[in-house]
Design a protein around this nucleic acid. Sequence first.
DNA 1: TTGTAGGCGTTATCAC
DNA 2: GTGATAACGCCTACAA
Lengths: 345, 345
Amino acid sequence: MKLGQATIKDIARDLNVSSSTVSRALKDYPGISDETKKRVKELAEKLNYRPNAVALSLRKSKSFTIGVIIPEVVHFFFSTVISGVEEVASANGYNVILCQTNENLNREKSSIETLVSNQIDGLLVSYSKETKDFGHFTKLMELEFPIVFFDRLPEIENTVNVTVDDFNGAYQAVKHLVQQGYTKIAHLAGPNNLAISKKRKAGYMAALEDSGIQVDENLIIECPSGTEKESYEVALKLFKDEKNRPDALFAHHDIVAAGAMMAIKSLDLRIPEDVGVVGYSNWQFSSMIDPPLSTVSQPGSKIGKKATELLLEMINGKKRNSNSSDLENVILKTELLIRKSSVRI
Amino acid sequence: MKLGQATIKDIARDLNVSSSTVSRALKDYPGISDETKKRVKELAEKLNYRPNAVALSLRKSKSFTIGVIIPEVVHFFFSTVISGVEEVASANGYNVILCQTNENLNREKSSIETLVSNQIDGLLVSYSKETKDFGHFTKLMELEFPIVFFDRLPEIENTVNVTVDDFNGAYQAVKHLVQQGYTKIAHLAGPNNLAISKKRKAGYMAALEDSGIQVDENLIIECPSGTEKESYEVALKLFKDEKNRPDALFAHHDIVAAGAMMAIKSLDLRIPEDVGVVGYSNWQFSSMIDPPLSTVSQPGSKIGKKATELLLEMINGKKRNSNSSDLENVILKTELLIRKSSVRI
DNA sequence: TTGTAGGCGTTATCAC
DNA sequence: GTGATAACGCCTACAA
């Protein structure tokens, strides 16, 4: 910062008053003559005075800044979350410091170090795929530091969480496939250490069972990396086998679904006539591929907003980490978007 | 910040030394006995001491924080830029404060106010569509405050810019359409006050002229909002008119192209046989729609990285705003990705 | 080798 | 009504 920004002291010197007077005048404190107040404000205006937020942070031990730790920015869902976070934060006078971990545990840990040493007031976290131990979070929580977890929930007690109802989202998706007359429904699952993957898988299985269809473990295939390429290959193998070929697919992710669709089409199978497909997340491209992909829509921006609102409440003492309040675990509803890829009736 | 983080004073008190000794010991300053150094470091470790970055900022008038002002986070191109920025910043020990303007001038202005009062060391900017006056930027630049503009360049002298070669990107795209035998090529342009829109349009026109095709102003239609819906309607009108129907389309944006493709398909025209389409930006969905969309790929992450590198150089005094150095205007190359939507030979 | 004092910009507390 | 002082956490002349 090279800008010779004017300070309270400058104003005080120019006006031959003390800096306390200036400080009080600027904030309309009682006990300052209208005359002085006016002179101070005018000069402040003229010098383009702006309070130094860093000095304020130090003085008040409060930075009006929150940290966001996120696996990847380039991810439609996360970018919508960030957008929601920024929205609510800025509306409440808070800054957002962004850290992406690239799914790397060490970066997650070092991000926390920096953020904490920057005196952030609170933290929003979606942890990395590598994170299996949550010590770096619990240490902070024991000191009553405000943290809200979103999307990926850690196995820690008494956390404040914002998430979507993954079980139900998957359940609805698979039920829909069943209603469309598909009976042999495969599942391309996410990495097993993520709670969301487990819940989607559980929803898938429950929907089958409730429909009187037996779960076939051979039809559940893990796609840990979640790339298009990976699922393309997985799906190719899965659908090549004519004898055991599934007639539908529920993917834990639109990208995974898209890769699989490419494989299915390359085998000259028709979607949705031969194979029905439903994805998850409603990526921006999902409505534009051929055929448009049915998917479970997660309200990303709403998650970001809600998480930030909760965090600000915690910061401002209206809420603690470990209340019995039911607010501590907010579960937002998903929405099943039915498009062409899964409709054959 | 409720965490009772240990301070230098705490360590000093415990060890019965002065805080300057602790400060020096922690930073391996000369003239501290090994004995003291060891005791200080051990206790620091034990107390989990972390320097208070806010106090440091105040002391040094340097925050190791940069601000990013961006129109929208939920935008594939911008999210890749942000990712690149975060990458380079964190590798150099800098934090990133993110502000999105939602294309709103007032938010842009107030973001700058907050960022500056937070003593950021420098600023990366892609300004809003509403911004026609750049006073809020020039005011800072006159004070030698480091700013790097990316993607959208302001009409100000002596700025440091990172951008892509939009003219050439468009030129290549249209040349490619010509080579494929399309002759009546329409252009869905962006808002005219953005330099990028102008350059893409200029590239479009130059490519036509260089190919001996006369530019027809009726085939250039502005799509200011850039939404799918808008371009759907625009394209519907454009391609309904059988007499003057174009046989190809160059859109300033993939979303715009996608909307137009839906319109074209709804008129039972085939892509690429009847109509060739090329977009711009290589959104994630572009390779997945039907047919896969040819597009001009902008190296978003590279832009973010390069812009941040330049900014850090400016911050660290290796570079000034208004040098004659040719580094002040970095133009990165685009890449034409040829997919099915534009290939009929 | 270590300590003291002052200051970065602000505000709360006490005094006049 | 206003001013002086101390404090937030850290660093760095200058002293000792």
